[in-house]
Simulated assay, not measured.
Amino acid sequence: MQGFFQRYLSLYRPLITTLNELMSSQQLSYSLWQVIFYIKNNGASTLVDISNYYHVEKPTITRRVQRLEELQIVEHIPGKDRREKVIQLTASGEEIYKEMRKKITDLEHQVMEGITHDEQLVVYETLPKIQSHIMRREGSKSE
């Protein structure tokens, strides 16, 4: 199917812009939200864990975490190794997560209006398969 990537990318940018606008009330962006979301769903985590999950360089995650620390959304906790930086959500971070999660869920419902449950399910189940194929392809390049 030609044009699939173009169609996907034409959705991606407006979605990120909308999410950034939605989160601006808390001085957040989608890239900062990714860190919050990961910690909320995986518990206290290292920067390496987060960078590996999102397939981004550790310095990128370090900058995001520093910004979240400034906003008092995340804090450091002692790790097994003193060199290892482990972070968790603060009480304020937990509240901000709840507030933003509700707004994002409301947005998800709005943009899915008129799309049947079965159609939503197909997309929901297909996107991870595409991601897996891309990651497998990239993995074979490095071998």
Rank of each mutant, 00 (worst) to 15 (best):
E57K: 15
E119G: 06
L9K: 04
H55N: 05
I115P: 04
R63L: 04
L68P: 05
Q66H: 08
Y8P: 02
G43D: 08
P14V: 02
L107D: 07
W33C: 01
E57T: 12
Q2W: 07
T126R: 15
Q27N: 09
Q66W: 01
L121G: 02
I115W: 01
S24R: 05
K58M: 12
I77C: 13
L47F: 05
R13H: 12
S29H: 07
Q26W: 13
L68E: 05
R64G: 00
Y53R: 04
E143Y: 07
N42A: 03
S140M: 10
S31L: 06
G79R: 02
T126G: 11
A91L: 12
R83M: 12
M135D: 11
E119N: 09
T105K: 05
R7K: 15
V65M: 05
Q2K: 09
D118C: 09
T105S: 06
P59A: 08
H76D: 15
I50F: 01
F4E: 11
Y12C: 02
L19R: 07
E69R: 13
Q120H: 06
F4K: 12
M1Y: 08
S142M: 12
N42V: 01
N41P: 08
E125M: 15
L89T: 14
S132P: 00
D81S: 12
L47D: 05
H76N: 15
V111E: 02
G139V: 03
Q27H: 11
P78G: 10
